[in-house]
């Protein structure tokens, strides 16, 4: 098994945001191991040690269910994201498992063209080598702000 390198981490991030921004959400759960932990929270909640999230999934099945709900059950105006990432900081690299911190900015573009900075924050990740691929064992999406405009439909 190849060691975790910064190139592989970059490739994982690039593929992840490409998936969401191209609205290929059915592939989004494949970026995670099963079980996994995916939580969207805020810096204040994270600092306070609050475990709750706006989105909380501790299995790949829950991620699949989230996308199924977005596609077939939930009602929201057509919108898309543009993720812009900063450079990943590798906090720990154990060879087949690494912890990284990567800043993000997400611009939300509504169907009528209204364009706003929707969220900024940091991805606190634990990635693991699974065969030739890296997958997220844990992804905490720590938004800088606790405010969400209107609703959070698409994943960050």
């Amino acid at each position: 098994m190849a060691a975790i390198t910064i190139e592989r981490i970059l490739a994982l991030h690039a593929a992840y945001i490409r998936c969401i921004d191209r609205n290929e959400l059915e592939s989004w759960p494949d970026f995670f191991l099963d079980p996994c932990l995916y939580v969207v929270t805020s810096a204040e909640n994270h600092k306070n040690g609050f475990e709750g999230g706006m989105i909380y999934a501790d299995s790949k099945g829950m991620l699949i269910d989230r996308i199924a709900a977005l596609r077939d059950a939930n009602v929201y105006e057509k919108q898309s994201y543009r993720h812009i990432l900063g450079l990943p900081y590798v906090a720990k690299n154990g060879g087949d498992e690494a912890e990284t911190e990567t800043p993000f900015m997400v611009v939300r573009v509504m169907h009528d063209g209204k364009t706003d900075v929707f969220a900024t924050g940091i991805y606190l990740d634990m990635v693991r080598a699974a065969g030739n691929e890296l997958k997220f064992k844990k992804r905490l999406v720590v938004c800088d702000s606790s405010r969400v405009d209107t609703l959070l439909a698409l994943p960050l």
Binding site: T41, S42, E44, N45, F50, E51, G52, G53, M54, S146, R147, V148, D149, T150, L151
Partner: peptide, 9 residues
């Protein structure tokens, strides 16, 4: 366990 503000238009 958590606090969030949803800004409604």
């Amino acid at each position: 366990t958590g606090r969030f503000t949803q800004v409604l238009p």
